[in-house]
Design a protein around this nucleic acid. Sequence first.
DNA 1: GTAATCACG
DNA 2: ACGTACGTGATTACA
Length: 391
Amino acid sequence: MEKEGIKIDKKYLKSLEDDFQNELTVLENKIFKESGENFNLNSPKQLGEILFNKLKLVSNPKKTKTGQFSTSEEILSALAKDHQIISNILEWRSLDKLLSTYVKALPNEINSNTGRIHTKFNQAVASTGRLSSNNPNLQNIPIRTENGQKIRKAFTPRDKDFILMCADYSQIELRIIASLSGDVNMIDAFNKGEDIHTSTASRIFNVPHNEVTREQRSNAKTVNFGIIYGISAFGLSQQTNLNRKESKILIDNYYENYPTLKEYMSKQIDFARENGYVETLMGRRRYLTNINSQNGMIRSADERNAINAPIQGSAADIIKIAMKNIFNIFNEKQFKSKMILQVHDELVFDVHLSELDKIKKVVKNSMENAVALDIPLKVDIGTGKNWLEAH
DNA sequence: GTAATCACG
DNA sequence: ACGTACGTGATTACA
């Protein structure tokens, strides 16, 4: 994958650079006018001074651990409703991030021999066994916002005879925790092919499947993610519109509905206390040296890791097995198509058009059957003339 | 070199 | 009472 690299559309990025730059200038002028002075918008320190000392937007502003005013997205978003300047700052921030980290930086990474970008995939960095990517990081290319999606479009097939293909695991971490725990309620939902978040919502809010509201599904989704992270009532309340008490009730409901999952989580923590490590499906260990710490906060962090590491790590094991099998088949069959990126639960391929049907089958089959769990693994595949379309 | 922020799964 | 979600990397400011 490092050697193959991925092609980007340099001209397109250049025009995007101009668009973003123009928009930033407009926002900048508005912000400075509203502030009554020019300053470095990229300095959280200067920005904090303006917002909270000069304009006095709130009476008791939150500070970071070094005593500086916090101007994080989380803090500013809460103020956006009442102050136009805030929404302009947030917009400027996100646009400037995209411009400096991606639009301007990526073209400089093109290798002059291949005309493509060659990242590094590190195999011994992440403590859970995931890969990481750097120089440049191609595992955090934007996708969530509209402007971010414009950047994804810059990633293309290597030439006119190729097409990009993405294959991603659907809900792999929840499927893993369902399988490892053996919780029949969650296993059932996956086996029936149900939308897992709707299914969870139906259970924890005690309403029929077809009466689950958007908000209920959204909250259930957050709880499902929280479970993977080693949930706390506080953490959940931060991520939802629920307060701490409501969050606790929801978590208790969750455990009542998935009792075997709860049991599994307790057993993982007990195992870690006893042995000082936890392990993944394939036996990769994560040592947890603070699992018996007297300091509650430090101990809790290791307890969350005792839950999370086997899940995140097993997902990493599984996709690595799939990658190895795919690589071997590609070699045997002497395909012209190449595997070019891995993004944790997703593989990206530069596919020769003549091979598309075969490649689709090989990849889907290899990923879905990398290991046998108590639940089927599901893989979604897409193709397109750029990375956004293929997704 | 560290802190703050924010991009992704 | 206290402080908290898991895993990464890049950019920028600033001491």
